[in-house]
Amino acid sequence: MSAVIDKADIASYAIRWGDDALILSHRLAEWCADAPELEEDMALMNLALDLVGQARTLYTYAGELEGRGRDEDAIAFTREEREYKNALLVEQPNEDFAYAVTRQFLYDAFSLPFYQALASSKDATLAALGEKAAKEVRYHVKHSADWVVRLGDGTDESHRRMQTAIDELWTYTGELFVNDDLDRRMIAAGIGVDLTALKDSWNETVNAVLKEATLVRPADGWMATGGREGRHSEYMGYLLADLQYMQRAYPNMKW
């Protein structure tokens, strides 16, 4: 096994996970003043805030490793769409509250074991982030799982909306567990997380929660991929237009 770790590789790895966090936080922030209850408005913003914090740590670290003078904002706001490597799941729009809750739950159930595993990374910065993020995500998954159960086992309407959301979002879950070349290099170096190994934990969480929620787990059919290579859905361009507006309209300024 090669002992030489390419810093650019670690930077790309950090950016990938930062992108998941940033894009999901953007979708959550779109709920501001629009949630079903004031308490939930605050809860969703709280999740979004944790995710922005995770993205900042990851982007800042990536910028340092690159040594090309990019800071967290240059990475967050000034890349082309193809350079964002987030999973397709997190960019899916807020069709209704059922979608938001389901998207969150499916991702949280993945990111909790992911960050727990990252806490054992040989890279000290990523390990520290893994430990911190796992603590945060533990609350996220509790919150989203509670909603999945409440809405799945609530009224006929809420059950129907939840089943629709889970059926439609299911196709984006496969991508979360695919190791690509970068993942394999990071795993070999003891820095990255083996994504295929997270599937059992995810299945256990998802199956238990769906059962309690009286929701049917969709069959694992065709799974959409492309996010990790920067091939996104049509929604992504609009999301970035919003996210990047200030940095595009007023480049190279301090705010």
Binding site: P36, E37, F97, G154, E157, S158
Partner: peptide, 12 residues
Amino acid sequence: RGAWVREAAMAY
């Protein structure tokens, strides 16, 4: 828009 969510939470 949130009415169905609140109703479901009460029902649950």
